[in-house]
Structure formats: structure tokens, C-alpha cells
Nucleic acid binder design. Structure first.
Length: 286
DNA sequence: AGCACA
């Protein structure tokens, strides 16, 4: 692999503006019960609210965003609010996993927020807002004591904050109701439960297709390792269109990664977003 | 649509 010729990733590769323009004015609430706010982590600690705004501003249906200093170390997170759930999902898939800072190699981790931003955009307050929860920072880079997990990204970054609301995941549970729980016989027998995953049988190994020709295992590792239970990824079929197999500890963890990374682009992607399915067989242990 | 490694 001589010459890593990757063009700088353009987060605005989706230069299209969909026909949906009839949002109406002053309607940031969206449909009731649906989340229209994204939670963004994986940001460099020197990120600016303007950068967040520039990241999202061209996304269809975007309303406003806010940058939040969590007060834990220099950790920064952001919330992006859209006019409806569908626009939020589209932006999530488009931007999740993209390299935000090529220098540090950090990539964005985007998920649905646990609750919508209740903070309404007041006229005159501008398109973005900064919330600073840092209290004792000044010269202190990390917490004083007793907590050693300051540097690592937790599997669930959204637990770091409560997003100024006590609203729990009412819509989240409805979304992932595929695997059910108690009896386990549900999905296979019920004709109304159609698996949309492309493969009928869940597997803790994922099959990833539609990768760019220059995709590397390192790049995939970077995108996948932010998900709990990730073990390893292998690229096969180097000629033409490469595919990859990503192994996880548990099926549920693989499912989570698949859901969130589905359709998202890597820096090396040139044919659109990744197509992820359950692999037909589990990666061989070794 | 494309699913390997043992």
C-alpha cells in the first residue's frame, strides 16, 4: 500500500437538499414521543460550538445545537436538535463515525439523545449555545483522585450527562424490540416481525460490505472499537470491493454497532455508506 | 449483491 492517498473527508458529501421544506415556523418540538435530538461524543476537547454548528448546519431539518462541557476532565459533548425524528436519524447515519479531527484521529460517536432538548431556541439567542459545567478546571487536566477512568471512552458516553431531563428511554425500547426477551420465540414465528437486517439469523460477527477500496482494518477498528464487546475486524476480498468481518462478544453488542454504523461512511468510503449485516457464521476463534 | 478464517 504505497501512498495513502485519501482525500480529506468532506462531512458535507451529502450536498443534496431533500424536498421537505414545509417544517412550519417555530416548530422544534417535533412529533410527540419521538427523539429529534442527537447526542455527540468523541469530540476533541478544544472543539468550538461553531464547529459543531458547521458540522450540522447543512443537514436537512437541522434546527440548533449546543456544546456542553461536562465538567468531567476536558470532556466535551454536543447536542444537535432537528425539526423531526427522521432528519435526526438521517444526520446520525451520515455523520456517525466520521473523523472529526484528522490530527488526533478521533471520530464522532453519535446516538439519539435520551430526551429532546427542552431548551428552545429563543429568537436572538443564535443558532448555537454553549453550556459550561466546568467548575474547577483551570490548570487541572484530570480529576483529582479516586477515579481512574478519566481517559477512556466509556461504552455509554450518554451516561455522563443527564441532558437536563429525567426523561428515560421510552422510544428507545420500542425501537429495539426485535430481540424481545422473555420467551424468545417471538421473532421467528411471528410473520409481522420482519427482520430488516438482510440476514435472518443474528450473529455476533458482522458482515460489512460496500467499503472503499482503500479501507484498512485500522480504520474499521477505529470506528468499531467505540462499541462495547468489539473484539476484532478482518478484511477479506481485497480485490474489487473489499468486505470485512467484525467480531463481537455478544450478539446484542454486534446489533448495537450494526444499527448505529449502518450506512455511515468512513474516510475511505467512496461508494456510499457501509452495508452491515449479520455474518452467516461466527468468526473462528483463535 | 458481495460471507472467510478453520
Amino acid at each position: 500500500m504505497a501512498g495513502m492517498s485519501h482525500q480529506p473527508y468532506d462531512p458535507y458529501y451529502l450536498a443534496v437538499a431533500p424536498p421537505m421544506q414545509d417544517y412550519g415556523a417555530g416548530f422544534a418540538g417535533g412529533e410527540k414521543g419521538l427523539i429529534n435530538t442527537l447526542f455527540v461524543s468523541g469530540l476533541p476537547d478544544d472543539v468550538k460550538a461553531r464547529e459543531i454548528h458547521n458540522l450540522f448546519r447543512r443537514r436537512p431539518g437541522f434546527d440548533s445545537c449546543q456544546l456542553k462541557y461536562t465538567g468531567r476532565g476536558n470532556q466535551v459533548v454536543a447536542f444537535a436538535t432537528f425539526f423531526n425524528h427522521q432528519s435526526a436519524i438521517a444526520a446520525l447515519h451520515a455523520l456517525n463515525g466520521v473523523k472529526f479531527d484528522p490530527q488526533s484521529g478521533s471520530s464522532l460517536h453519535i446516538e439519539l439523545a435520551r430526551s429532546n432538548s427542552r431548551r428552545k431556541r429563543k429568537p436572538g439567542s443564535g443558532p448555537y449555545v454553549v453550556i459550561d459545567n466546568r467548575s474547577n478546571e483551570a490548570s487541572d487536566a484530570r480529576e483529582p483522585s479516586s477515579n481512574d477512568d478519566g481517559d477512556s471512552e466509556s461504552e455509554d458516553p450518554s451516561k455522563d450527562d443527564n441532558h437536563e431531563s429525567g426523561n428515560e428511554d421510552d422510544s428507545e425500547t420500542a425501537k429495539s424490540g426485535e430481540t424481545t426477551g422473555a420467551d424468545g420465540t417471538a421473532a421467528a414465528e411471528n410473520p409481522s416481525e420482519k427482520p430488516v437486517d438482510g440476514n435472518v439469523n443474528p450473529c455476533s460477527t458482522l458482515f460489512i460490505a460496500n467499503l472503499g477500496p482503500n479501507c484498512t482494518e485500522e480504520e474499521l477498528t477505529q470506528a468499531l472499537s467505540q462499541y462495547a464487546g468489539f473484539k476484532m475486524v478482518k478484511i477479506r476480498g481485497r480485490s474489487g470491493m473489499p468486505v470485512a468481518f467484525a467480531d463481537f462478544e455478544e450478539i446484542e453488542q454486534a446489533s448495537k454497532a450494526m444499527e448505529e454504523l449502518q450506512g455511515s461512511q468512513l474516510a475511505s468510503s467512496d461508494r456510499g455508506g457501509m452495508n452491515i449485516e449479520y455474518a452467516r457464521s461466527k468468526m473462528r476463534k483463535h
